[in-house]
Every structure is written in structure tokens, then in C-alpha cells.
Amino acid sequence: MKILWKGLGTSLMMVGITIGQTLWGGTWGVYPAAAAQPLQTMSDFAAHPAKESILLGLQKGYIWKYPDGRFYPDKQIVQSQFVASLVAIRGVKETAPVPELPVGHWAKGTYERAQKAGILADVKIDPNKLLTKEEAAQLVFNAWKPYRGVKMKGYTHTGALITWGWMDPAPAGQPKFREDLPVSRGDAAKILAYLWKDKWQLEMGAKWAEEFHRSLKSTNGMLTGEVPKGDNLLYLNVKVYTKDGKVFGYENNGEFRFPLSSVKEISFMAINKIDSSNAALYFYTQFPKLTRENKTIQFSRP
């Protein structure tokens, strides 16, 4: 898994280092310029439940230790820390004005990137604010709107994120969707790991979907195509639905050939082999135009 993420990790690590430098000097003294500092220093999280998520974030450069080399996984995360991580994962470079923060403010550069990316929509800007689950979940849905759409209706941000599986529910004996509970840095690391992996798989799913799309040919009354070879993480599947009610399936590296007049619909799907999450889903219903419709799973399921 870590090998698969290596290329994307390098570029985002550089963004993370820049953000770390921007935030250095804040009142909570976080995110030094050495965002890619050695991972062997795990004195305060070696036995923590979020250890693997923390290690992933440190390796990829979207979370940071404090200047003393510790991560403090049980310390409540503040808004600017979480925003900085979301900006780093998104790889945002462009900016938009944030008048709430004065010129020269230690967090202004990061918040301007977050503003441009829509991460701060309907959020009260307060870099030092200790985040609750509801506040963190809202930032997540804002950041991930371009990828997975909007949260499910009828849920708070907390309830929707817990239902999606990216936030832990409240401890046993409490209401499952308690929005007021604090979010620790360890909690945040686990949430951010889900985002990192989801962004990576969505990008890979789109890549393989594009390769499949380029393979489709409609010539001399025949429709042909090839399923990409893919990779070790994603299972690729193409289904050809014919007008007589039959369905033909093809997997990684498969090829097909059908009379164009017999084809009713084609679907392309990329699924994560580990957790069965959806990385890409496209449908073709217009022939011979081969126009496709993106149906990749969204937060709000129909």
C-alpha cells in the first residue's frame, strides 16, 4: 500500500512542508518546516490506536509533529491544524482573500488556500479553536465536495461522516452521533488517512476509466474495447448489456467485441480490493457516440 502511494506522496509532502513553514510561529507552535522528519521518533504514539494513521500522515507530509518531536495524539486538535492538513491533502496552491485574518497573520496563507478550495464554507474562522466532531466533520465535507458531493440529507455532519465510516462513533453507552465531543490529533489522523487513500483511489480510478474510454472503438458496425491491466489495489470490471437481455463481464486486461446494433449499455467500474469502496463508475448508453456518464459513488446515495 505505501509503495503505491509513493509518487503522490512526494508532491503532497512538498505542499505540506510549505504549509508547515507558513504556520510556524503560531500560538500553538505546530508544524515545523521539517514536515518529513524521521518517523522513528514515536515516543508518544507507539502504542496508540491511531499509530498507523499517524505514521502514514507523517510519511506523506500532511500532518506534523510539534517542535519537540512529539505528536501528542490525545491533544485536542485546533482548527488551523486540521485546515492545514486538508489543504495539504487537496494540494491547493491558489488562494482567495480571507479578510478575517490580518496581513501578516501566521495562518493567513493556509486559510487563503483553504478559502479557494471551498474548505471554509460556512465555517467561522478561528485558527486556535479546539474542534468538536461536528466542526471537524463539516470541514471534511467541505473539502471533499469536489470528489464525493454533499453529505446525506437528514444527518448532521457528524452523523453523516460516522455513517460513511470515516469518523468513529461516540464511546459505548453514549448517543452514537454526539456532535459535541472533542477531536484529538489521533482522531484527526485517522480521518485524514481515509481522505488520503480516497483521493488516491479516485485519481487512479479516473485514470483507468480514461484508459478504457480511449480503447473503445466503433468501426464497421462493431464495438470493441479493452479493460486496462490496472494495478494491485483496484479491481476493474466492464459489463456489456445487450438488447436481448444478456450481460457479459470482463475483468482486468480483458477484451471484447460486439455488433454495435446489439449493445444496449456498457458499465465500467473500479473497486478497491481491500474495502470494496468505489473508485470509479461510468455508464455508456449512447451509441455510436460513446458518451459516458460519471456515476462514481457520492456521499448522498440516490
Rank of each mutant, 00 (worst) to 15 (best):
K6Y: 15
K6P: 03
G9W: 09
M14C: 02
I17G: 11
G20F: 06
G25Y: 05
G25L: 06
G25A: 05
A34K: 12
Q37F: 11
D44H: 12
H48I: 06
H48C: 10
A50R: 10
L55K: 12
L58S: 02
Y62H: 10
I63M: 15
K65P: 02
D68T: 08
F71V: 04
A84K: 10
S85A: 15
A88N: 07
R90C: 04
K93L: 08
K93V: 06
A96D: 01
E100R: 15
E100Q: 15
L101C: 05
L101E: 06
W106Y: 15
W106A: 02
W106Q: 06
W106R: 12
T110D: 10
E112F: 01
I125T: 04
D126Q: 12
P127H: 07
N128V: 05
N128T: 10
N128I: 05
E134I: 01
E134H: 07
E135T: 08
W144Q: 14
V150T: 03
K151F: 00
K153P: 02
T158M: 10
A160S: 01
T163R: 05
G165S: 07
G165T: 04
R178D: 15
R178A: 11
E179A: 08
D180L: 09
D187F: 08
A189D: 05
L192T: 02
W196V: 06
G205I: 03
K207P: 01
E210C: 04
F212K: 07
F212T: 06
H213F: 05
H213Y: 10
H213S: 13
G221N: 09
T224Y: 05
T224I: 09
V227Q: 03
G230W: 00
D231M: 03
L233W: 04
V240Q: 00
V240T: 01
K243H: 08
V247N: 07
G249I: 09
P259C: 06
P259H: 07
L260Y: 07
V263K: 00
E265G: 03
E265N: 11
S267M: 07
F268R: 00
I274V: 15
D275R: 08
S276H: 14
Y282N: 11
Y284F: 08
Q286C: 06
Q286V: 13
F287A: 06
L290R: 13
T291S: 12
E293L: 12
K295E: 14
K295M: 15
I297W: 08
I297N: 04
